[in-house]
Structure formats: C-alpha cells, structure tokens
Design a binder for these strands. Structure first.
Lengths: 217, 217
DNA sequence: CCATAAATGGACTGGTTAGTCCATTTATGC
DNA sequence: GCATAAATGGACTAACCAGTCCATTTATGG
C-alpha cells in the first residue's frame, strides 16, 4: 500500500505532505479532507503527492501513523518520570490545560480517527490499535513504578488499572469536546485516579460469574 | 434549518429518509455518506429528500437527533429498574453482548458522531451534548435509587459517579471497536462499577438489604 | 368531484473529486 | 560535466457530488 522512502529532499517533502494531511484530516475529517486542500496546505503539487503515495487511502494510513507517533512522543515523555501519585495529578492537570488551550476542540487525535477508520480500513485500524497499546504500556509502566515506590498497594491490578485509566481519558476527552468543557476531563480522570489510590480489589469472581449467568440478548 | 413536519404519509417518508441516512452515516461517516446512497437506501427520490430537508447539513442534524433518540430509548429502558449492584452488572453484560453481536463494530452511535460534528456543526453538537446529558441523568437516577436502597454509601457522589461511568462506557466502546475485542468493554466497565462498589456496604449486606425494599414506580 | 396543496420522480447542472499523464527541473554518482 | 534517476508542476479527465427545477401523481376537504 505505502511507498518506499525517498532520497533526501524527497523524505522531507513526503513528511511535509503527511504533516499537512494530518492537520487537514484533524479539522475536516478523513472523508472531508480533499487532496487539493492537502496539497495547498503543504505547498506541493498533485504530482508530488502521487509520487509518494499510491492512493488517498495509503496517505490516510500514513496520517494515522503520524498521528500516533506525535501523540505518543508527547505522552511517553509525560510518563517518563512518574514516581509519586502527585505526578499523575500533574499529568491530569497538564492534559486539562491542553484542552483549555485548544478550547476543548479536536478531542484525542487518535481517538477521533477510530470511528472514521476502524471499521473500513483494516490497515489504519491496526495502526491506531498499536498506538493505544503503546499508550497503555506507558501507563502500565508508570503504575508499576508507583507500586514499586509504595505509592500503590500490592493488590492493585496494574494492567487493569492502565486500561481503565486510558478508557477514562478517551471518554473524558470525548465528553469534554462535545460539551466544550475541559473540566469534564478533570472530574473524570480524578475519579479514575482516586480509585487506584484508595485501591479497589480487581474484578471479583462473583462479578463476572453473575454477569455471565445473566447474559441475555 | 430544519423543515416543518408534513401531513401524514409525509411524516412516514421523512422518517424513512432519516432512518436510511442514519444507517448510511453510521457506516460511511458524515462526509462519506452521499445523498445518492441515502436516497437509494430509503427508496426515495432526490426531490423528496429536498422536499423535507433544506440541505445535507439539516439532514445530518436530524440524523444526530434520530441517533440520540434511538440510543436513549434503549438505554433509558435498561436503566428503568436498577435497584441493586447486580442490576448494573447485568447492564454491563447486556452491552458487552451487544458488542459481540455487532462484532465490535460501530462503537457508540452517538459517540462516533462527536469527532465528526462537534467542532464544525454547532447545532449537531448541541443535539449530541443533550443526548449525553439525558444519558448521564438516567445513570444518576439509577445510582440515586441504589443509594436509597442502601446499596451505595451516603458519601458516594452520585453526580460524579454517573459522569465517570458514562466516560468509561464511551472509552470502553472506543477501545473495543479499535481492538475488535468486546471484552475490553467488560474489563473497563467492571472496573468503573467496582469504583462505586468500594464505597458500598459489603456484598452480603447489600444482597439482603436491597432484596425487596421498595420497588420503583 | 373539483380545487388546492402536498408528495413524488428524475433529469439536469455547475462545481469538485481522486487519480492520470507527461514535460520539465533538480539532484546524484561517476 | 554527463548520464541516470528522482523530484516537481500542473493540465487534464471521468466520475461524482450537492443542490435545482419542474412536470406529474396522489391525497384532502368542502
């Protein structure tokens, strides 16, 4: 699907196209983003675009990868040094402030692509899923560090906690966006964090058991 | 923006168009949905579509409203009788099973529209935000009922709990969709529920207390 | 029944889209 | 400085898009 890298200036041009496309896709959506606007944004000709990408779809997949890389470069840096609980509170506040700056627009750059791509473009879906996996792993690692430092009780399930934190973040960004209110994200993430601090037992047997029993259409 | 209701058959035709549009938008996205495909799906002519809607945008807003109405009709029915914690576990399992049936495709019909509409269509944004508000209120009411029945401790903040539960649901649906794995939703929602349950009386107490206190109207 | 209005069907249009083609320019290796 | 390949620009096309227009059909009320 994708094209092999170019020489030297070529790689720069290619990246310029992907960056422009990422920006246009973010604001207009996947289907709403036209190659014309992308070329205009990148100050590049149509011929150049098709020199580096065989189709719009392959460009979109590159956009998905680019989005994942940018978000995770930032997030992984935020999670680099998390040793106390207040580090996580700082993380929350950083994300809330970012949403305030953005006027609660855009939501999560990765999450926003999911409804548009996951069901119709298997390649893009894998890229996005991989991004979330990296994200989840970064959170896990931080929680493990917290546990090691005694800031989390032993019986906290770090794997489940990381997944639930990531889900709260995604849901929180969605609700903040639709309500134009970044403070929603704070309430949601603070709640998720509190559960980790005060500790909750991981899924109990009876919870899953009774749920399975009642599983009807 | 929208058109006045029609006579009799007219209202049926209008609804047929909205239903078809809702379906097409769900699978192709807002920008990817063409009026041609919508007309074909609804077995309706172009003239009819523009007889009931002044523009594609107004049709999309009707689609947003239709989506909200359908999801909330279902969700509000699910929340009608929630008096014990196991009722919430049943709710989780119902949603998980639904995702299994859908092959983890589609995500939340409302949530999927947010990234596509919230930042570019203020009217649609309000419709979606209102839908989430109704959803949140239904959850709140159920949690209040739980509290009344003694299944939740007094110091649990029902308002925050409802918001956090809704956020976990949205994030859970997103992650289930992108991972093609409905069980993600279960882990995430079970965790969110336990967050509430931590503050609840012990299981035995809850079981006996909430057994048959007062049935809701 | 007849007059009026609503409902319907579908051809049509002007603009836009993804994608093609090819001539020209620029870099690179030798 | 020359040959080869990569990079670039932009005109072009066939398909498709949202939206228009209008003739025809169907319902309704008095």
């Amino acid at each position: 699907m994708n094209e092999e890298p170019a020489t030297e200036k070529g790689r720069a041009t290619r990246q310029k196209i992907v960056d422009a496309a990422t920006s246009v896709v973010q604001s207009r959506g996947v289907e709403g983003a036209t190659l014309g606007e992308i070329c205009r944004t990148a100050s590049v000709s149509k011929g150049q675009l098709y020199h580096y990408f065989v189709s719009k779809q392959s460009l979109i997949q590159a956009v998905a990868q680019n989005t994942v890389d940018k978000v995770l470069f930032y997030q992984e840096s935020l999670f680099a040094t998390k040793e106390t609980f207040s580090d996580f509170e700082i993380w929350v506040e950083t994300l809330v402030n970012l949403q305030v700056d953005l006027d609660a627009r855009g939501g999560c750059p990765i999450g926003s692509l999911v409804p548009q791509l996951a069901d119709n473009d298997e390649g893009a879906r894998r890229v996005l899923a991989d991004g979330f996996l990296r994200w989840e792993m970064a959170i896990r690692e931080s929680l493990r560090q917290l546990k090691k430092n005694g800031a989390l009780r032993r019986d906290v399930d770090v794997d489940e906690g990381a997944l639930q934190l990531l889900a709260s973040l995604q849901g929180g960004l969605l609700l903040s966006q639709v309500r134009k209110d970044p403070t929603q994200l704070r309430v949601i993430l603070d709640g998720a964090l509190l559960r980790l601090r005060d500790h909750a037992p991981s899924r109990t047997e009876e919870a899953t058991q009774s749920a399975r029993l009642h599983s009807t259409a």
